[in-house]
């Protein structure tokens, strides 16, 4: 029997904050791609579901010295001591050893929300309501991503449905590996400023790998030791200082 084990990848992103204009295409593209339902009437920014959320962050100065940076924050795909994985009581969260993608299986989830308290990046979202699309919109859902039911946690999985599609395509062609161009998450694809670079961090020839080591590239909360696979880049000093600061400090 043929061994079908795939080579080990470590998918990650480098987001150039200087390029991000905060337009929000990525958030909408993400919701459309991953069948995230529109907000319930009563939903707020604290009960909504935004796998990818862009936070506007100010430098705190008054007019006109004020400056704002937009920080797209998604599951950081922690590569080390992944905080949400160890806490889940029933193995609904795991790190895929072959891709490094942190997966959340809503069908296994019992909705205890322990993973949400564990995640320092607030990248996990709970379905406080039953998902509801306007009447008739069901036919517009993406068939590659299962909608979630209420009462479970969900989060970014680097558009895993697209990885599935790329794998199907590769398998049909008799290939073992997917073609890199076949697997691009929706936010990366839709970003008008091309602020997000996505790829395999383990592949040193890859642009994402090179950028992750470049100057002015940083991670959020690196001292927690969780080794996030989302890197950020900014030439602005205040942005890097802000990212390095402790909250409320």
């Amino acid at each position: 029997m043929e061994q079908t084990a795939q080579s080990k990848s470590r998918y990650g992103m480098v987001i150039d904050l200087d390029r991000c204009t905060g337009c929000g295409v990525c958030m909408v593209a993400c919701a459309v791609e991953n069948n995230v339902a529109p907000a319930e009437q009563k939903a707020t920014e604290r009960t909504g579901v935004t796998w990818l959320r862009v936070y506007p962050v100010s430098n705190g100065e008054g007019f006109p010295a004020n400056d704002t940076v937009f920080i797209p924050m998604t599951c950081q795909q922690c590569g080390n001591h992944t905080p949400c994985v160890s806490v889940c009581p029933q193995n609904a969260v795991e790190v895929d050893p072959s891709t490094g993608i942190v997966g959340q299986i809503p069908q296994r989830c019992l909705g205890c929300r322990y993973c949400m308290t564990a995640c320092p990046y607030h990248a996990r979202y709970f379905d406080w309501w039953d998902p509801q699309w306007p009447e008739g919109t069901e036919v517009l859902l993406n068939p590659d991503v299962a909608p979630r039911m209420r009462g479970v946690a969900e989060k970014c999985n680097f558009c895993h449905g697209r990885l599935h599609a790329a794998r199907t395509k590769a398998a049909a062609a008799g290939r073992k590996e997917i073609a890199a161009g076949d697997y691009v998450p929706a936010c990366v694809e839709s970003c008008p400023s091309r602020a997000i670079v996505f790829g395999d961090l383990a592949d040193e020839t890859n642009e994402v790998s090179r950028l992750s080591h470049s100057i002015n590239t940083f991670q959020f909360l690196p001292k927690l030791g969780t080794a996030p696979k989302i890197f950020y880049h900014s030439a602005k000093e205040w942005v890097r200082k802000m990212a390095d600061r402790a909250p409320l400090a």
């Binding site: 929000g24 958030m27 907000a39 920014e45 009960t47 935004t50 862009v54 937009f70």
Partner: peptide, 9 residues
């Protein structure tokens, strides 16, 4: 709603 209601973007 992701941009207007579910976040402060």
């Amino acid at each position: 709603s992701k941009l207007f209601q579910e976040s402060h973007l």
